[in-house]
Amino acid sequence: MDVVLAGADSLWVLRRARSDAALGLARGVPAPAKTRAAELAAIADVLPDGFRPLGSKTPLDLTYFSRRQRPFLAAVHAVTHLSPVLEDTYLLVTGAGENGVRLFVEGPALTLSHMAERLRVAVGHGSLTRTAAFFRLMGLASELCGTYARDPSNPASGDCAWKVDVLCGPEELRRSLSLASGVRGVAEARRVASLVVGGSASPTESLLAMAMSLPVELGGVPMSAFLHNEELAWPKGTRQLVNHQTMTPDFYWPRHAVALEYDDAVHEDRKNVREDHRRQQDYAACDIALVTSQADDLRSAHALERLMRLVALRLAPCEESGFMLLVEQALQDSSASSMRTTLLSQLLPSRPEGREDKKRAPAGDKSLHS
Rank of each mutant, 00 (worst) to 15 (best):
N272W: 09
V258Y: 09
E261W: 00
D296W: 12
H277M: 04
Q294S: 11
K271G: 01
D287R: 12
D276E: 03
D297F: 09
V291D: 03
L241I: 03
P249V: 12
M247I: 13
Q245Y: 15
D250R: 06
D287Y: 08
H244V: 07
Q281K: 02
W253G: 08
T246C: 08
T238C: 13
D297Q: 09
T246E: 14
A257Y: 14
V291C: 06
R270P: 00
V273N: 02
R278V: 00
D297H: 14
D297G: 05
Q281C: 10
L241N: 02
D287I: 01
T246K: 15
H267C: 04
M247P: 02
D250N: 13
V258M: 05
A257W: 14
E268L: 00
E275F: 06
T246M: 13
D296P: 01
Q245L: 14
C286T: 03
W253Q: 03
T238Y: 09
W253S: 06
H256P: 10
D297C: 13
D264F: 07
D297L: 06
R278I: 00
D264N: 12
I288W: 07
D297V: 04
R239V: 04
I288H: 05
R255H: 15
H277W: 09
A257E: 15
A257H: 15
Q245R: 15
D269K: 00
D250I: 11
R279I: 10
A295V: 11
F251Y: 14
H256Y: 10
Q280V: 04
Q240L: 13
H267L: 02
H277V: 01
A259C: 11
R255M: 10
L298Q: 02
H256M: 11
S293L: 05
A285T: 00
D297W: 12
V242Q: 07
H244R: 15
D263P: 02
L290K: 06
D282L: 07
R274L: 08
D269P: 00
I288N: 08
A257Q: 15
L260S: 08
D264G: 15
